[in-house]
Design a protein around this nucleic acid. Structure first.
Lengths: 152, 152
DNA sequence: GAGAAGTCGATCCAGACACTCGACTCCTCC
DNA sequence: GGAGGAGTCGAGTGTCTGGATCGACTTCTC
């Protein structure tokens, strides 16, 4: 259950992009400097996001990157899927694709429930919400409990 | 957000172990055969579970492995932590340990909420429940919706 | 009681894969 | 043209998965 550096970097870059209300393109170099992301790695991440239609690239001088669709329409789940594939996978397979023998097939239900649980959080959080610092109830209700912040 | 083979194998082996109501020890060779787990890999996984006190090993002829504490007291979360470390980590760091700059610090709340969300599922599901096929409400309520089974 | 057999325990090795990052090339606008 | 920037390619590193070997320990059998 680990979040890759790619997903984290992608989200941070998008937050920075969405904060530019003017809609001007931002260079990858600047994004990398603002969020301390290695330039080459960020380039590959932005390419993934471009293929998913999340961002648009513009070459040439005064070129750069900007949102491909409104930041309110891009969820955290969209970004993770574009950059890292399915939300949850069981060593390479999607939860609904893994096969177990009779005694272990209940495990599949657990993985499906886990994905459902993550979707509740990731699909209801948009990039715009992150840029504004206005988190949805799906997040705030789960972080209110102090126990949620203890190491687990 | 991927489940490693180690966690999956560990859970399958434990389900098989907990199904032996007689409390007799089961050899690693038999566990591996029943659940199609590579023998050497399973040996390493069982060693991790032993260090966590989840299982007990017995050498010698008619030796093998058995539960170290009641299967009702071992949750899926316990197993994942014993075998793969923290439930969710952001490229190596625990969610509460990652540091962001001002504009991105909201991301930490998202990761905390995600972990809280997973704990709701994994901590309420015991090995005994899996062995009996009697899943807790935390799981059944999330898998009831047909949409939960669609690829995401 | 001695030997044999079965089992865990630890270590090393290797291929595959993903992660991380830098260097170079090509395109676009001034 | 020239400069700034996207686009592509590839290398180094680490982790995951799996196999093999040798040693230690316990029980069973004769």
């Amino acid at each position: 259950m680990r979040v890759s550096a790619k997903s984290d970097y992608a989200l941070r870059a998008l937050i920075e992009m969405a904060s530019r209300a003017d809609g001007k393109a931002v260079s990858a170099e600047e994004l990398g400097r603002l969020q301390e992301i290695p330039h080459g790695f960020l380039q590959a991440i932005l390419a993934d996001l471009r293929r998913a239609g999340v961002v648009i690239s513009q070459r040439g001088q005064s070129g750069g990157w900007r949102m491909g669709r409104p930041a309110t329409d891009v969820s955290v789940a969209d970004v993770i899927r574009a950059v890292d594939g399915p939300l949850v996978s069981v060593y390479g397979l999607r939860p609904e694709a893994v096969t177990y023998n009779e005694s272990a097939e209940v495990l599949q239900h657990v993985w499906i429930a886990a994905r459902r649980s993550l979707r509740d959080v990731f699909e209801q959080t948009s990039i715009q919400a992150l840029a504004d610092g206005k988190l949805p109830k799906a997040v705030t209700s789960r972080t209110a409990d102090e126990d949620a912040w203890q190491p687990h």
